[in-house]
């Protein structure tokens, strides 16, 4: 009988995978990611030129 590898935990001690996947779900899908990225880049690229009269950043 081979001794079990100490690095391998006792399967009985394992908990089920956490059902908490909200954080993952918060990841935008590829399409929304692309849209959001393009919007962000456009906004940042134009920011120094944007003639905003009332922004007092």
């Amino acid at each position: 009988m081979v001794a079990p590898d100490p690095a391998t935990p006792d399967p009985a001690a394992l908990e089920p995978v956490s059902p908490e996947v909200e954080v993952l779900a918060a990841d935008p899908t590829v399409r929304t990611f692309r849209i959001a990225t393009i919007a962000m880049v456009a906004a940042l690229a134009l920011a120094p030129w944007a003639a905003c009269t009332r922004c007092s950043l």
Partner: peptide
Amino acid sequence: MGGVYPVFIMKALC
């Protein structure tokens, strides 16, 4: 120079 102050955005970007 119009628009948003670039140095400020650079700081925010970093």
